[in-house]
Amino acid sequence: MNILSGLFWLALTVLLYAGMRGLHQRFPRPWLSPLIVVPAILMAVLLLARVPYAAYNAQSHWLSAMLGPATVAFAIPIHEYRHVIRRHWFPLVIGVVVGMGVAVFSTVWFCRLLGLPEALERSLSVRSISTPFAIAAAPQMGGQAELAAVFVVITGLVGMVLGEWLLGWLPVRTSLARGALFGAGAHAVGTVTAHKRDTEEGVISSLTMIIAGMLMVLLAPWLAAWV
């Protein structure tokens, strides 16, 4: 019986995702993204039916388990565009270091300014990197993986809108800078936006995002003691 209810939630998640992805392809509005609509529907159903999260996650955790292999898949774009890394290693390194430094420190300062508790501050500090990396880095920063995942999603949506607007008046000339802006500021969501604007922008954005994610995971234990 337990297995069946667990499988029911797993199946419902996959089916809702497949349905909403189709709808989003037909009506590409940011608020119709499966990442907003599907969790919203499922959370409403779980709350109304008074189903605890543990029951939902009994089998659904298999989906989260796929985030690991998905990070391995990031090796493919790195290998494919290694000539871009070799040619532009300097701006890429600067973009990643500046982007991640500003992300962590500005988040912590804004949190303290607004009086948010440390548990939230720690989870928010990794919000600029792609979700699988953020889930790995959040506990090391002293935050919660699940909260970090939600903040990462919100960051992506905010960054997608903010990025286009900022590029309207920021005095940047190179597609390197525009790609780095999306990759450092809005991870995978930004990368999709950058790809739509220009192929080179998209490549730089995805490289910035992947390198930034790996760097944050490696540096999180030290950063946690530092901020």
Binding site: Y17, P34, P39, M66, L67, A70, A149, V150
Partner: peptide, 14 residues
């Protein structure tokens, strides 16, 4: 990858 995030996002209920 969006599909794999969903259970993690729902965990915010806790």
């Amino acid at each position: 990858m969006l599909l794999f995030f969903i259970p993690v996002v729902i965990a915010v209920l806790q």
